[in-house]
Design a binder for these strands. Structure first.
Length: 654
DNA sequence: AGCACGCCGACT
DNA sequence: GTCGGCGTGCTC
């Protein structure tokens, strides 16, 4: 018997081992094993079992898991994710399996015979320590002992649930404001919990969202609600893990770490406003949790509800492609809906501040709450000496500095290094320093100067948790002015009378084919979070943008989709950016040739759309793969192990 | 990822 | 003459 083992290393292939006789009866797919690797012992996961006998292969040391920790549906999801996000299976599995064997600390051994009474009441972990894994394993197989999980004190059951038959299920893309989303979710969750099914609800990975929904749902559904976030303590993570694995009727709220939770009775997957792609900065297994959650629902044959005020194009496309029911609550410009938003003429001026002040003054006079949005959080950037015009640049990388006044720091926007700020030009010694762009810190400071008696609250997301806690205390204060970046849109259920946008259109300059989509999402989510009665927009005349294009959502989606289609951009096509870096030209050409061959074999060589050569200290090739997702997926992982190759799925720039 | 092997610069 | 830099390659 041979098993293929995936290790958590950046190598896409698996390694084969012979299974010694004593372990043969226990070998199963997706069990963790220990095996000799690199003259030490590595832990990996069985991905395949063959019956033949291998010549010259090493033997497995032990099978560590008693039972598979994940079910068939999750296995399928892992395989899909490994291909889709071009990540070796071992790395995917490492992400979602509980670390080490801490599951065993939460399982209690119950003896059924005299022979085994000496381990009665011990934790499985302890029993294994004292009597050896193999012995305990044998007893369990022979049914001389049983396992109970300690949280519900119920028998521990193996997950045997296979995926449900796919019915004409009612997947929904719900586009609407927070209130209507909440109502919609609540109803769907109630009926699932009532019928004893588990609900998985994915929230944006920031304190505001978690806090909002956790409070509301805990009040409604009591101890049926679990929180499973990235910061959740191991013990309560394990409690959630066991509860939903062994029983139904629970609601799990969480962020990306919860999309791979094993569920005994999966009933519904909800994804709430998860359009930011935070996942890009992550280590190891990078994935878009929304996509995985949607895929999970589809693999398990259960409905998915994607809810947002401004779904990403990717999700909108996914919903259309997979025949989701699209429910759109018209609440932006629709007179009949609760939010009546009036957008005044667009102002334009050189300095926003001059025009901001009268609006704030007027609002304050009426005792209103006002929110001011600006794209940057810092005080200013692009610092230049007034006298000699020398720009302040990062000594490390020549990048442009952001000035953080409160911290007294210059932070390089390219490399992130920071330096103490000195108000003196390094070139001519002048101490008149100017900056061409301002941010939230600047606006907040100026407003404090002009309106010293008014509470000015800065929301930049530096420590959103703190900011929100502070907010709760002062929310009844009127008047109040919020100044902030797009973090303002992370607040849930705040009401301001006036929303002022300063330099919103600058977001377009951030580039990438998704910049327009980002503008759309930021605008809509600001409106969603702050529910303003009216919006004032200041933008420079030459950058003037018509806001109506963004407020008519239906039209926006169709026009943007058409633009993407015309330009062959995602989400209608999938894109991979493949970079090849080698020391010699020869080698690089060999690798590019190998890539071509792989694609030719798959019959999709026309997916390679451009080869660029860059020559610096070494040779660098860049190719772009684009085409139908189904065609590309299984092929791209095949490039992973080629020397010098780096693959980025869904690049922002290409 | 880790670890070994391997081929060029300063050094007890 | 070596010690050690980290570039390249392999792990069943």
């Amino acid at each position: 018997m041979i098993v293929d083992v995936a290790f958590p290393i950046p190598v896409a292939k698996t390694f084969s081992y012979v299974v010694p006789d004593k372990w043969k009866p226990f070998a199963k797919k997706f069990l963790r094993v220990k095996a000799p690797f690199h003259n030490k012992t590595q832990s990996g996961v069985i991905t395949e079992i063959h019956d033949d006998n291998g010549p010259g292969l090493k033997e497995i040391k032990e099978i560590t898991d008693f039972f598979p920790v994940i079910d068939n549906a999750l296995m399928e999801l892992c395989t899909w994710a490994s291909n889709y996000y071009v990540t070796p299976m071992g790395a995917v599995l490492k992400y979602l399996l509980p670390p080490n064997l801490n599951i065993e600390a939460y399982l209690a051994v119950q003896s059924k015979t005299d022979e085994t009474s000496r381990m009665d009441g011990l934790s499985l972990k302890k029993a294994v320590q004292l009597f050896g894994r193999e012995t305990v394993f044998q007893y369990w197989k022979k049914n001389l002992i049983t396992l109970r999980e300690i949280f519900a004190e119920s028998p521990f059951l193996l997950i045997t649930q296979d995926k449900k038959e796919k019915k004409i299920h009612d997947d929904v893309l719900f586009i609407g404001d927070v209130r209507s989303r909440l109502d919609y979710y609540t109803e769907a969750i109630s009926s699932q919990l009532y019928s004893g099914s588990n609900v998985l609800m994915l929230l944006p990975d920031h304190y505001a969202a978690g806090n909002y929904f956790k409070n509301i749902f805990s009040e409604k559904f009591g101890d049926k609600v679990f929180w499973y976030g990235s910061e959740t303590k191991p013990k309560s993570r394990m409690e959630t893990f066991f509860r939903v694995r062994n029983d139904g009727g629970y609601l799990v709220l969480g962020n990306k770490s919860c999309v791979f939770l094993p569920l005994r009775k999966p009933g519904l997957v909800i994804v709430e406003r998860h359009e930011e792609d935070e996942y890009r900065n992550e280590e190891g297994f990078k994935f878009n949790a929304v996509m995985v959650a949607a895929k999970r629902a589809s693999i398990s044959g259960i409905p998915a509800i994607l809810g947002s005020a401004s779904p990403s194009m990717e999700m909108y496309c996914y919903a259309e492609k997979n025949k989701f029911k699209i429910i759109e609550k018209k609440w932006l410009l629709d007179e009949s809906s609760q939010g009546k938003i009036s957008v005044p003429d667009i102002f334009s001026s050189a300095t926003f501040l001059e025009e901001l002040i009268p609006i704030v003054k007027e609002g304050l006079r009426k005792g209103e709450k006002i929110a001011v949005f600006t794209p940057r959080k810092n005080y200013g950037s692009h610092l230049v000496c007034h006298d000699c015009k020398t720009p302040f640049l990062c000594p490390h990388c020549e990048g442009v500095f952001d000035y953080e006044k409160e911290a007294g720091l210059l932070v390089c926007s390219v490399c992130g290094k920071s330096f103490p700020y000195e108000e003196q030009c390094g070139n001519c010694g002048s101490n008149i320093i100017r900056f061409s762009r301002t941010g939230a810190e600047y606006v907040a400071e100026k407003l404090k100067d002009i309106f010293p008696d008014v509470r000015i609250v800065k929301i930049t997301g530096d420590s959103l948790k703190k900011e929100i806690k502070q907010l709760k205390k002062i929310l009844s204060d009127v008047p109040i002015v919020f100044v902030g970046t797009q973090s303002l849109s992370k607040l849930y259920n705040i009401h301001v009378q006036t929303l002022v946008l300063l330099g919103w259109e600058e977001l377009r300059k951030m580039g990438g084919y998704r910049s327009d989509e980002k503008m759309f999402q930021i605008l809509i989510n600001l409106i969603d979070a702050l529910t303003p009665d009216n919006i004032s927009i200041f933008m420079k005349k030459r950058n003037k943008i018509h806001i109506d294009n963004y407020l008519e959502r239906d039209r926006y989606y169709h026009e943007e989709l058409q633009r993407r289609k015309n330009a062959d951009f995602p989400p209608l096509q999938r894109v991979f950016l493949v970079e090849i870096e080698t020391k010699s030209k020869d080698k690089g050409e060999k690798v590019t040739a190998a890539i071509k061959e792989i694609f030719q074999k798959a019959g999709i060589e026309n997916a390679i759309s451009g080869i660029l050569m860059e020559k610096k200290t070494q040779y660098k090739w860049k190719l772009i793969l684009r085409g139908e997702e189904e065609l590309l997926n299984s092929t791209v992982l095949g490039l992973y192990d080629l020397p010098g190759v780096h693959i980025e799925p869904d690049p922002l720039y290409f």
